[in-house]
Design a protein around this nucleic acid. Sequence first.
RNA 1: GGGCCGGUGGCGGAACUGGUAUACGCGCUGGACUUAAAAUCCAGUGACUUCGGUCUUGAGGGUUCGAGUCCCUCCCGGCCCACCA
Length: 950
Amino acid sequence: MSEYNHKKIEKKWQKKWLDSNIYAAKDFDKKEKFYCLIEFPYPSGERLHVGHGRSYSALDALSRLKRMQGYNVLFPIGWDAFGLPAENYAIKTGIHPSITIKNNIENSKKQLISWGCSFDWDREINTTDPQYYKWTQWIFLKLYEMGLAYKQKMPINWCPSCKTGLANEEVIDGKCERCGAQSERKELSQWMLKITKYADRLIEDLKNVDYLSKISTQQINWIGRSEGAEVLFKAVDTEGKENDMWVFTTRPDTLFGATFMVIAPEHPLVQKLTTKEQEKNVLKYVKDTKFKSDLERQELEKDKTGVFTGSFAINPINNEKIPIWISDYVLMNYGHGAIMAVPAHDERDWDFAKKYDLPIIQVISPIFVDPINPPKKDAENTIRNGVIVIVKHWKEEKYLLDYSPKFNWKCLFTGGIEEGEDPLEAAKREIREETGYQNIKEARYVKLSHIDQFHAPHKGVNRHAYQKNIFIQLADGELKEREEEEKDLHHISWKTKDEMLNEISLINHKYIFETDLMDGQPWTDEGVLMNSEEYNDLKPEEAKEKIITELSKKKLAKKAINYKLRDWIFSRQHYWGEPIPIIHCEKCGEVPVPVKDLPVELPMVEKYEPTGTGESPLAAVESWVNVKCPKCGGSAKRETDTMPNWAGSSWYYIRYVDAKNDKELAARDKMEYWLPVDLYNGGMEHTTLHLLYSRFWYKALFDAGVVPTEEPYKRRHSHGMILGKDNQKMSKSRGNVVNPDEIIENFGGDTFRTYEMFIGPFEDVAAWNEKGVEGVHKFLKRTWNLFELPTEEGEPKIEHEKIINRTIKKVEEDILNFRFNTAVSTLMILLNTLTKEKKQNKIILSKFAIILAPFAPHLAEELWMKLGNTKSVHLEPWPKFDPKMIEDDIVTIVVQINGKVRANIMMNKNSTQKNVEEKALVEENVKKYIGTEKPKKIIYIPNKILNIVI
RNA sequence: GGGCCGGUGGCGGAACUGGUAUACGCGCUGGACUUAAAAUCCAGUGACUUCGGUCUUGAGGGUUCGAGUCCCUCCCGGCCCACCA
């Protein structure tokens, strides 16, 4: 007996596999291709962590399975090495990033090899290699040529600590994603990429790919497409001149409810619109906003603030004069930086109107359909005007609850309005009749009216009731005897407001009561129009169409679509990135670097620190900056901005296809063979940035005729994060970081991989557990010991045949469905079963070794060789399971009585119900429970369950 | 506030289209081997129990012969987004 020695066997096989290059993908192979992509790592000083281990192990297992299933698998790897961590390290140590990166790559590569990853190392890439970024620059020039790259002066997010511009996506909670410093606004001329031009296609084409639904949803939300209209408001400025103010709205149907306008403090018309009297306030507000950090400005549940400009605009739908206010809740970078405020139907506008006492006009009427007596299809529809009344006690904080025994509901008081009657008077009249209370101190409207729809059974008609909701406070307790009929209909009692909220059983009444308690609230749901002249009673969808059509005749509105997605700020004022290949010539302006001059290599510098002036350190390298204009030969300067970290990773998977090509980014025929990627796995955190950016680049390259398909990734999957054993994110400060190298040293790569797959469902977060690692190690050790047992030749036992076939099927299915955890447990069950035998069968062991290979490739290889094989187990075909072997001839049928398990009986497969019943009824326990009773009903699910109901 | 996903033993987690809940691993208990320990192996391990059973998948209802799974109401947790008009 020898012992499992992971160190010896893992080293040995790692070397042999590298030497024989058995995992290389073959271009144009006749076998079906399978391109399996994982996000390439950043080779930082920290090396790779157990989080990398999780997805790399799992996708490696999948790649190995696919290879064994006869696919030509491309499973490549590379290094995403530009960016801040390497640059910051260089600033600290003075060592050139390329040197640091080279060392880190060497170490990280060792790690990947120690994990037994089956990468095709021939295709290894590095985004900082001039031979690679030559093509990143080439793509930039393509985008430039297509008009998708442009320079614009604009306020950007500026990190005062990193001294660089940040993309919106890099600002988290108003702080720099990298260093955590508060970001500021700064106006700089920036290179931008027009990703918004592709917004619709980026949404639309999600239909043609197979992404986890949460990934698609997140991308769609991020792009944030909303359909609506642009509406023109004419604003008269202080000089009496008319100015056009466009607003974007998704609710043109609520135009009649637009009672004021709000514009962003940065809005270009602010100055013109501010009157003398308001000047002081406005100037102060604008100034305050400027100094406010984004964080403060976006603070949640913050009170809305704003100031009146003193000017008015004309609401184009009814020519009403409405005041123009300034507030920072309106964002300059969305829509036109101006809104029409409809306080009755928008939460923010509501808050603002409440705070500054601006008018609120309800223009959408909620419709409540009675759930007990809904309108009937054939019944006549009648219109009625009514009131719903809240009655408050003259002294206490109590309200009158009406209980109707006839309908069995608890509610407020209702009544009809007679022809020509004032609703408030109608309410008073009804209350006197229905409650007996006579003296009313106050009657006022609740800030919401609505429509009730119900069927009135006694009349046989449907009611469409326009309800005015009214609040009444009694003056005193004077009661007049009610008529008998009223007494029967209305059982009244005093309740506190909480009791009211709990007990009112009609949703519309409850809503009215609630609304009044809150002194009104905006109605943001469905309904029909009201207070909107000829558009009254229309549904919002219809009203939108009609209002836009009407206004567009006068050129006062047009249909419009808006996106939350912004264009991509592509400039960075950093050293360690791809130089943007543009030359600025005094005479010719922007001139792209000719393709023959690519790559524009990064010059060697002494200092890596950002200048802080808004220029990158490259600006100081005169010999590099000063060039001849490629067009006119005159003196010119290079662009000194570099590209963001996202650039190199936006197309790296294309390069894998033809990693060493020095003529083009990849040969067309190779792209046609390998692309699109069949499966791309990565973290959820890259869903809105990297994944969207790379889809955008690919689509642009498709339009340029460079790549062969519309979408780069057929399928996208994601993995969950690995937490420390304390269930917290791993971090040095918490001291809960697991170092994979230690795991490899103590337990080996096979244990590491298998544990990472066993840790839990692949998509879920999982906490690291050292004991769990030991458990998996024990499993591998016991597997080793199994293969140490004496073997028998010949046919295996039938039950072993069965279990190996079932295991093959289950493991295969589980890997393909990302259920790596249950795949491992299935192998454990197989081992537990086989271990019960003193002698092992060679056929079974051979299959075991093969199906173990995706999980523990080194151990599987060693065991395979021990069985007398000479060719690698990883070149073996995946065993085919025999469907006959999976099924049992004898099945256990559960006998239930009234749904409770009372016996198990063994039957031949597909026995008739009659046979099963006969067998079941002679079972002692079954007899006991049935006793003398006669079965009422017997349910038989073939080969599974017999349920006797008595 | 919006979107998405969850809630099952002491713990991580299994359970296909509704059909024996708690697979597998960890932990724990007992035993074997050992001078002893570790390692290894074997057995047991949801709770309660008057040992007949009874109860258990966040809480409460419903549908069903049968519900972790489907429907309704509520509670709790996680992740992402968040003043986007």
